[in-house]
Simulated assay, not measured.
Amino acid sequence: MAACLGLVAIGPAHAHVKWFCAYDVVGAPRGLESVLCDDFEKLVALSILALIVGGLFENTVLGAAMVRFLDRTTGWIRTNTELLFRAVCGGFFVALWSFGGIILTPELTTTNPALSWLQLAIAAGFLWRATLPASAAGIVALFAIAASQYGAFHLADYPIFLGLAVYFVLIAFQRDLFSLRPIDVVRYAAAVTLMWASVEKWAYPDWTFPLFIEHPTMTMGFDGEYFMKAAGAVEFALAFALICSPLIRRIAAILLSAAFVAAIFQFGKVDAIGHAPIIVAMIAIAADNTTAPLRHRALALMPMGYAAALAAFIGLYYGAHAILYGSNIL
């Protein structure tokens, strides 16, 4: 039941709450004793079960058939991945320039008019491969400015932008980052971004409650507290799946892109523009046809890896908040 709830309602749940509701990053998050409850444990168990089933499916004849189907249907995207990234990110920064007063995302506001022209220059840099490093430097500069104004903890929501900056540098020089291809860098950055966002859903579910008043169908009749735990659990599982085996991560990317697109119909153009870079990243990941056999040992270790990632992100989120703002994590 919880898994079905999450998959059906994940679209509206992926609207970035800071763009539409009041929030207080400095305020104390929910104590861990109220987060790590029975419902949470059941949702985690369901998430692990779903990942294991996905891994087993990947090694079947049906799994191989799905890989072939995805390869056929995503051929154009795979061939034009660089073009899609440049076009979408170019449009994103033109939109920021047009709106004005925004650094990178709607809640990161500024009164500095020079930043709008920097955004336009970043967009122009996407026109030529030779100028991609300059655009990447501009993205990093905007990220640093936002971090200086809003704090590193707030900007931990958005490592996807740093991943995109590295992607464009690697594309410009036709290089890998050690053994990571440019698309792999984006994939890992997206996974980190979404896993951090999942913990925020558990830590501050009350930020989203005003949206439930405006959009009562979001919770599908479930209690708001439980809904936020379920939405966070599904998002974390799909984000973790992005760093798993090829078919699992492609399916996760499809589900995540569908979720972000679904949220646009309910929350409008602000959500469309704000999520455009991560939507194109999910589409590119879904089209990536790199293959690697899923070993039984890797499948057996998946629950341990998931548990370690879950503990690490919860610990990092709450630990960083306690250190920076003096909150009581219990």
Rank of each mutant, 00 (worst) to 15 (best):
L108N: 11
T73F: 11
F93Y: 09
Q174G: 15
D184A: 02
S198N: 02
G125F: 04
G75I: 14
L162G: 05
L83S: 13
C89A: 09
L155F: 01
I77C: 13
Y188W: 12
D157W: 07
F85R: 11
L127N: 08
A191T: 00
T193R: 01
A95S: 09
E82F: 14
C89K: 06
A136E: 10
T79E: 13
G101M: 06
E82I: 15
A144L: 08
F99L: 10
G163M: 00
T111K: 11
A190C: 07
L194V: 01
Y158R: 01
T105R: 05
L170M: 06
Y150D: 09
Y158L: 00
V94L: 11
A190G: 03
L127E: 09
M195G: 01
F93W: 08
A124R: 08
I145S: 10
Q174W: 15
F178V: 09
T110H: 07
G125M: 05
D176P: 01
G163Y: 01
N80M: 10
A197Q: 05
A156S: 12
R78K: 14
D184Y: 03
Y150L: 11
F173G: 05
L83D: 13
Q119H: 05
P113M: 03
V186S: 03
R181M: 06
A87E: 13
T111V: 12
L108T: 15
L83N: 13
I183V: 15
L84V: 11
L127G: 07
T105W: 06
A136S: 14
L115G: 06
A189P: 01
T131Q: 09
W97R: 11
M195F: 00
A144I: 07
L120K: 04
Y188V: 10
D176G: 03
A134Q: 10
I160R: 04
T131Y: 08
L170D: 04
F85Q: 11
L104A: 04
A123G: 06
I103H: 05
A190L: 08
P182G: 05
T105L: 10
A141L: 15
V88C: 02
A189Q: 01
P106V: 05
G151R: 00
I183G: 04
A121K: 10
T110I: 07
Y150Q: 08
Y158E: 02
Q174D: 15
S116N: 06
A130N: 09
A172N: 05
V88S: 03
L83T: 13
F153Q: 00
S98W: 00
M195D: 00
M195Q: 02
Q149F: 04
S148N: 15
S179Y: 05
Y188K: 07
F92Y: 15
T74E: 11
Q174I: 12
L104N: 02
E82Y: 13
A146L: 02
S179M: 04
A121S: 14
I145F: 13
L162T: 04
